[in-house]
Design a protein around this nucleic acid. Structure first.
Lengths: 247, 247
DNA sequence: GGCTGATATTGACTTGGATCAAAGGGGCAC
DNA sequence: GTGCCCCTTTGATCCAAGTCAATATCAGCC
């Protein structure tokens, strides 16, 4: 299980400070000086473990903190009254969770761990206080929020205009790129989510997702066995995304 | 044309200051003291007119300001290389444009006026400076960004899980609610966008949008003639949205 | 280590919305 | 004022993805 490597294997030292966390370049402290990061340390008050399947927060919960994924993997989703689910995102190491809650003091979606995970809790009012002092932090936080908006627009494009196979190709390429940024293989990874969750994210039914996987395999783009994916032909997947009309 | 009323009919006095702009409760100054708003005045450097059909900014343009819609109506869209368009939103009076540009110093979508419009230009670095001084402004700005994220999640839900008529119903109800917040009738308004633009936003083809309009009319939910829409049965539209299986 | 429920694959058939096509209707430019 | 082009509506047909169903496979638990 490759992802096991991502979790600290020894329990001796628990790093509770941003200053000696190895997620610098991915997480909130990006671009901050050593001195500034030390101020952040006080802010990141606590760690919290969330076991696979558990909620980090639920829609309707009072909002007071955002969270940084320290290890593990999450999904966020929105539920309609009749039970329909829309997965709005998958979050991995170094990514922030809970930005949706700022708007009206309560969370508007659910965040659920897809594997045993750990998050850093960042009390939001503290973050606002500190970002009035540290310009770098302020700007970086704004960039993170803006990036989320841009990502959402990408998902809208995917849901609004792409065909099933294009959606799955885009999804796999996105995962590949994010795993790469975290030092993992761009070409081989375990999916933490089910076909149904992928389908929900991509606006497809699980059977359609499964069929698209099989088709990619037949065409030699990937090798897939259940949750284990190996990308054999990145260029092929990219090409798939840009051809509107298929022959 | 009801919307003509939204545009200042007299050209004598041009209000260039937030402090005497009537969009207080909708726009950035929300919740700020008179004194604080006066500081904002210096920030909002200039007005800019954008004629119908013109771009306020384009994907790829360097980012340095965000914009507040003073009057008029905009759409934002993202284009795929092969020409497919996804409309990511429609912006009306008091709403902000350009938040997507913060993430990497350049705009990632196009903003196009759907009628002759006017925007206030807010240099972003000034906004960051001022929001380090004024906590209310800082917090409100964060809320605005967060609200955009929540809105995007709503659109994903719509695109990912709803059927054509549900999407259109959700769209009309959303417009109605926003017009109401601006003091217009909740039940009667002119659409500023074409069927094709509505379709792009909702992930549907223009013919499907047109048919859904006709169907709503047949069923007595609305009266529609071209761009003029009158909602006859809000409850009916709401009900439409929550019934997954239709008989 | 074998049982069990959850997850995944694959096939057969259906269907909602897309596509193709044709005819009205309106707004704007001249 | 009028003519043209864009926008909209409506009909007929098609197809990508959904639905229903039957296995197959895996992961976790005792």
């Amino acid at each position: 299980m490759p992802n096991r490597k991502a979790v600290a294997p020894v329990l001796t030292v628990v790093e509770t400070a941003c200053s000696n966390c190895n997620l610098h370049e991915l997480c909130l402290p990006l671009g901050m000086s050593t001195e500034e990061v030390e101020k952040l340390d006080e802010l990141v008050s606590s760690r919290r473990r969330v076991k696979r399947g558990e909620h980090l927060y639920r829609a309707g919960d009072a909002f007071d903190s955002i969270f940084a994924v320290r290890s593990g993997f999450f999904k966020t989703d929105v539920l309609l009254e009749d039970g329909r689910e829309q997965v709005t995102g998958f979050q991995m190491t170094g990514e922030l969770l809970g930005l949706d809650g700022i708007s009206n003091e309560q969370h508007s979606c659910n965040a659920i761990a897809l594997e045993d995970s750990e998050v850093c809790t960042i009390p939001f009012s503290h973050l606002e206080n500190l970002s009035r002092e540290i310009q770098t932090l302020q700007h970086h936080f704004h960039q993170v929020m803006s990036r989320e908006i841009v990502r959402d627009h990408g998902v809208m494009m995917l849901l609004g205009t792409m065909r099933a196979e294009e959606r799955l190709a885009a999804f796999l390429l996105n995962l590949s790129q994010r795993f790469t940024a975290r030092g993992y293989s761009p070409a081989e990874f375990y999916l933490r989510m089910t076909r149904e969750e992928i389908g929900s994210y991509l606006g497809l039914k699980l059977e359609t997702v499964s069929r698209a996987f099989s088709r990619f395999q037949e065409e030699g783009h990937i090798a897939v066995q259940q949750k284990h994916v190996r990308i054999l032909n990145i260029a092929g997947l990219k090409k798939l995304m840009s051809q509107h009309t298929r022959d």
